[in-house]
C-alpha cells in the first residue's frame, strides 16, 4: 500500500558524517569567526556584497564540489525524492522563507546553536523538529 522508499539504519555512517560536519563548524569558527549556518550562508551569498559575499559563495562551492567528488569516486549519489514536483515547490518556498524568518536551520540552530546552548536555537530546533515530524506523519498516515 505504501510506496515510500525504505532506508537502512546506519549509526556508524551517521556518526562519521556528523563528526565531519562538527569539524567543519569548528574550523569555520576558528578561521573566519563565523557560524556555519547553511540557510544564512545561502541567503547572504545572494544579498551581501564584496568579501561578505565571496566567503559564502566559496563555502557553497565547497559543498557542491564535495558532491561532485563523491560521485566521481563512488559512482553516484542517492537522492530519492518522495513527493511530486508541486509539493516540492511548496516545500522549497516554506524552507527558504521559514529559515530566514527564524534565522537558521538544521545547521545554524540544530548543530552550532545547540552546541553553544543558545536558548533561541534550542526553541527553534524543538519547533522545527516537532513541525517536521507532525507534517511527515500527517502526509504518510492520515
Amino acid at each position: 500500500m505504501e510506496n515510500w522508499t525504505s532506508t537502512p539504519f546506519e549509526p556508524f555512517a551517521g556518526l562519521a558524517g556528523g563528526l565531519l560536519i562538527g569539524s567543519s563548524v569548528v574550523l569555520l569558527l576558528y578561521t573566519l569567526g563565523r557560524i556555519a549556518g547553511i540557510s544564512g550562508i545561502a541567503a547572504g551569498a545572494m544579498t551581501q556584497q564584496g568579501s561578505e559575499r565571496y566567503w559564502r559563495l566559496a563555502f557553497l562551492a565547497g559543498i557542491v564540489l564535495s558532491a561532485v567528488l563523491y560521485i566521481a569516486f563512488t559512482g553516484g549519489m542517492q537522492v530519492q525524492t518522495q513527493m511530486g514536483s508541486a509539493w516540492l515547490v511548496v516545500a522549497g518556498l516554506l524552507v527558504g522563507f521559514g529559515t530566514r524568518l527564524g534565522s537558521g536551520c538544521t545547521s545554524g540552530h540544530g548543530v552550532a546553536g545547540l552546541s553553544r546552548l543558545s536558548p533561541r536555537s534550542i526553541v527553534a530546533t524543538l519547533t522545527f523538529m516537532c513541525a517536521a515530524v507532525i507534517t511527515t506523519t500527517i502526509i504518510r498516515h492520515l
Partner: peptide, 30 residues
C-alpha cells in the same frame, strides 16, 4: 514570534520534502 513562526514554516517544508538547506545544496550535483 518570528523565531517560532519561521522555524515552524521551515519544519513543515522539511517534513514535506525531506530537504533542509544543506542537503538541498549537496543534491544540486545530482
Amino acid at each position: 514570534a518570528k523565531l517560532i513562526l519561521g522555524s515552524a514554516a521551515f519544519g513543515i517544508g522539511w517534513g514535506i520534502s525531506g530537504f533542509c538547506p544543506g542537503p538541498a545544496v549537496v543534491a544540486i550535483a545530482s
